[in-house]
């Protein structure tokens, strides 16, 4: 009955993609109700030497590029739907992909009411 959203989270194993070119953590947001979501830092770590510029995109939006120092990219994200990130090289080619999934635990089964609320009026 409580419709307001509680932040939950999180997890878990990092995403190892494309022979561990990069790591994305977490790779999953666990909630107990479909109306809940996670609010967390998503950390992108490059596991190879920086021989060209690598940038991270979410859909077609650039989130950031790895610096020569090799430090990870950290963004704060609300995860209320599955996210897909891509690692793009200098020439624009996609090097790797990583998903952050939204998983609903023990989803409470719902039904649509056959009458609108307050139909007793």
């Amino acid at each position: 009955m409580n419709k307001f959203i509680i932040t939950f989270l999180l997890i878990i194993n990092a995403t190892f993609a494309q022979a561990s070119i990069w790591t994305v953590e977490p790779n999953q947001c666990l909630v107990t109700d479909a109306r809940e979501y996670c609010e967390t830092d998503v950390i992108f770590t490059l596991n190879i030497d920086l021989i060209e510029e690598y940038c991270v995109f979410e859909d077609d939006v650039k989130i950031g590029c790895f610096l020569p120092s090799g430090s990870p990219i950290i963004i704060k994200r609300k995860i209320d739907k599955p996210l897909v990130f891509t690692l793009v090289g200098e020439q624009g080619g996609i090097i790797a992909r990583a998903n952050v999934d939204l998983t609903v635990l023990q989803a409470q089964r719902k039904r649509r009411r056959v009458k609108l609320p307050w139909s007793i009026f």
Partner: peptide, 17 residues
Amino acid sequence: CGETDCINVGEWELGVA
């Protein structure tokens, strides 16, 4: 279905206006 017309199976929905 939206928040207003969905109900959890097996739970009472009680409201008073």
